[in-house]
Every structure is written in structure tokens, then in C-alpha cells.
Amino acid sequence: MTAPPVKLHKSWNSRLRALFIRSEAVRGYTLLSPTLIVMAFAMCAPFAILVTMSFWTQHAFEIDTAFTLRNYQAAIDGPIYKALLIRSLWISGTCAIVTVLVSYPMAYYVAFHVHRRKLVWIILMTLPFWTSYLLRVFSWKVILGYNGAINSGLKSLGLIEQPLEFLLYSPTAVVITLAHAWAAFAILPIYVSLEKIDRSLLEAAADLGDGPVVSFLRVTLPLSLPGVIAASLLIFIPTVGDYITPTLVGGPDGIMIANMIQVQFGRVNDWPMGAALAVCMMVVVALISLIYIWVTRKMTERIA
């Protein structure tokens, strides 16, 4: 009586085995599954609970889990949150533009003019990025400070009487520090897109009589735009949420939205409000990024 089920089971088993061996996709996903499951779970679970908590409220030391939009109402009504978010977007946007502009010639140089020891150049350009973010920001504080390296240096050289005050504790200081900290994120994508450009296209442009400037504008720049777009997003998105740099070199005028979020989870101890602010920040940044991608895609389509 038991024979048929066993046989069925066996054939199913062998069929599965055959499928497993035949299908690359199944084998690929099996191999990928540990990484994918861990990463998907480790990202989805925290985000789900973050969003959920943003609809709760904090009462002294208790958290009320009744659904409410009060935090979002407060986030929209409170002028300070809006002002901080706009300032963060502005600082990060400026920083993304500045970093891409100063990094482009560097990436261009290594892609087109360095022929030997390219690897060493690439490592040199990206090396500081891997070292402690905190320490790099801290060294800027040391440099830009009221009695810091620049001011005391210029003073001892007799070039200035009073310390330059705009250096530390200003949005400018935040932009300089962020541009320095994130330069590698700009250089690498731009470099990769420049390196991919078929050199014969440039030769062709030269043969057809285009000068260096024209062929740069008509060939090199359009073809490297994907790298530029990636670079600007790779800088814009994470820097909106930075709070170390504003804390160390920003001063009161350089405080950003992430400082506010951090305070909610620290001193103020209103986690649901902090969660709501974090969600607002994510949504706004995601929307801006999507619009940016859409607009730039339309633009590149028109050029091509």
C-alpha cells in the first residue's frame, strides 16, 4: 500500500533535482539566498518598525501605540523642522554640485592622462575616504577653528589681525568638510564612466575637425553624464542625513535635520517624533532623487 506514494515522492525529488541542476537561476538564487535573506530582513524589519513607530506617540516614559498622525502634523506645522530640512537639502545640494565640479577634472586626468600606475592614482584618490569619518571631520575643526591652524597660521605670518570668523561654525564650513569627506564618491563613478568611453570616438571627433573643447562638450561630457548623475546622488542622499559634520563644524547656523532627529532619540527622548522626522526626510530625499533622475534622463535622451 505504501509503494505508490514513495515512488511519487522519489520522482518529485528527482524532478526537483533535475530542475535544480538545469536552471541557472535557481542555483544562483540558492547560492545568493543567505546574503539576500540576511540583507533583506536586516533592512526591511527596521524600516517597517521605523515607519510604524512614526504613527505612535510618546507619553513621558510610555509609548502609546494608538495610530495617530500627530507627529506628522507637528513636523509640518513646526517651522523649525521645515527650516532645518530645507537647509539640509540646500547644504547637501550645494555640496553635491561643488564636489562633482572639483572632482570631474581629477577623474578626467586619471582616465585620460595617466597611463602608468593608474591603480596607484585610484588608490591615492580614494584612500582618505576609507579612514575614520569622525577623525577627518575633526581635523577640519582643528584647521578651521577660531584659533585653528588657518587662523593662527595667517596671524603668525602677519597676514591678518583678527581671526577669520566665517571659517568655523557656518554652512560654508559644513560644505567644505562634506566635499572633502565625500570626494571619493564623486571621483569613482565619474572615472568609471570616463574610462568606458571609446577612445576612437574622440579620435573621430578630432579627425572631423573638432577641437579639444568642442569634442569635450560634444563627446566626452555627454557620455560621462551617467557617472556625474550617479556621483551627485551618491553624495546628496547620504549627506542630507549627516549630523557629525554639522555638530563639529556647523555651529548654530549649520545645524541640519539629522541633528534634530538625533536629539529626539537622545535628550528629548521622543522616539516616535524622531521616527516621523526620519520618514519625512527619507520621503523628501527619495522624491527629489526620483525627480532628478527623471529630469536628467529626459535631458540625456535629448542630447543622444
Binding site: 546574503t35 533592512m43 546622488l233 551618491l234 549627506t239 542625513g241 549627516d242 549630523y243 526620519a278 527619507m282
Partner: peptide, 21 residues
């Protein structure tokens, strides 16, 4: 893309999300 996402998510978001979890 999913696996690479932590590269672009602001650190503070990941930090507070994990803290809440």
C-alpha cells in the same frame, strides 16, 4: 541594488531604525 542599498541610505536612518527594532 537591494543588497547595495545601505551604501546610499543615510547612516542616521539605519542607525535609528535598528535602534527601534
Amino acid at each position: 541594488f537591494t543588497i547595495m542599498l545601505p551604501l546610499v541610505i543615510p547612516g542616521i536612518i539605519m542607525g535609528v531604525a535598528l535602534l527601534i527594532l
